[in-house]
């Protein structure tokens, strides 16, 4: 029963990892950009939630109403102000610029909030649980998981059924021809990054409610998100959800063997999948 429980908890944790990954997946799909600062932006969102809930007395989930648009704006400005200048055939500039951003965000958070671990207080929600057939599921992990499925479903729908999604796909296909269609690439990229960070805002708030956080934890969030993307297969949003679940379950099972093996076993499963299926479990169909 412990093992079944571990798989269940791991699956729910995978929802959070899919949320970490969805924003990463989106910007890679639209503009082939990998944002090294992604994890630190997740943590930034958690701190924004902290400030909103302590200063205004809001419940962290209500604070989303402020944090999501704030992160969208940060993403749009970041892309148009800095990252668009780095876009091109050479991968080095975006990589190093986002790496520099990561250091700036980390140390900026240290300056403002210190290194003390923080947590978002969500009241009863943190401890509420449902029981059935000998298994207990926390209401919060369940909400996180359902939100992850809903967000990925919404992103998928946006990508294939809206004008914005059409613009994203067209720009991803051929940037200059999309420009001929009246789509300003700089603006489209800004929207993609804004959307990516809006998803990141949700991920950050949930992270902050689930566990304590400090300015240094961004790196491992980036890695979890990245592993979910690669395990699921590049450019496949539902695959990313599956990748998050695989990673979450691997960690939960490793933790079941010994608590110190939790994170390591996730990495090892990732490396094994990379070795045997380098294109991920659900590679995007070509053509």
């Amino acid at each position: 029963m412990d093992w079944v429980n571990a798989i269940l908890q791991g699956t729910l944790l995978g929802g959070l990892y899919a949320l970490f990954a969805a924003g990463l997946s989106l910007i890679f799909g639209v503009m082939r950009l990998v944002n090294i600062a992604h994890g630190d932006l997740i943590v930034l969102a958690a701190y924004l939630g902290l400030t909103a809930s302590t200063a205004l007395g809001l419940h962290p989930l209500v604070a989303l109403v402020l944090v999501v648009p704030a992160m969208f704006a940060i993403g749009y400005v970041l892309q148009r102000g800095i990252l668009n200048r780095t876009m091109g055939d050479d991968i080095l500039p975006p990589l190093l610029v986002t790496f520099g951003l990561s250091i700036i965000i980390q140390n900026g958070l240290l300056t403002v909030y210190t290194a003390d671990p923080q947590k978002l207080q969500a009241g009863n929600l943190e401890t509420a649980s449902l029981s059935a057939g000998g298994l207990t599921v926390g209401v919060l992990p369940l909400i996180v998981f359902i939100t992850a499925v809903a967000i990925i479903g919404a992103l998928q729908w946006m990508f294939y059924h809206t004008a914005l999604g059409r613009a994203f796909r067209a720009t991803s296909d051929r940037q200059d021809i999309a420009q001929l269609m009246g789509l300003n690439r700089a603006h489209v990229f800004g929207l993609a990054m804004g959307l990516s960070l809006a998803v990141t805002a949700v991920a950050g708030i949930f992270l902050g409610i689930r566990t304590s956080f400090d300015p240094a934890v961004g790196g491992s969030r980036l890695i979890f998100g990245f592993e979910a993307v690669i395990i699921g297969g590049l450019g496949n949003l539902w695959g990313t959800l599956a990748g998050g679940i695989v990673l979450g379950v691997s960690q939960a099972l490793g933790g079941q063997i010994h608590p110190s093996l939790q994170i390591l076993s996730g990495h090892i499963v990732f490396l094994v999948i990379l070795a045997v299926r380098p294109r991920g479990l659900f590679p995007k169909m070509e053509g």
Binding site: R166, R169, A170, S172, D173, R174, D176, I177, A178, Q179, L180, M181, G182, L183, N184, G287
Partner: peptide
């Protein structure tokens, strides 16, 4: 001007090699 601004003025290009959007 950028291509999107030129397009908005009423000039359209059918590019050599067609260059359709394959994902659309």
């Amino acid at each position: 001007l950028r291509a999107d601004q030129v397009a908005a003025l009423g000039i359209a290009l059918v590019p050599e090699g067609r260059l359709l959007f394959p994902s659309l």
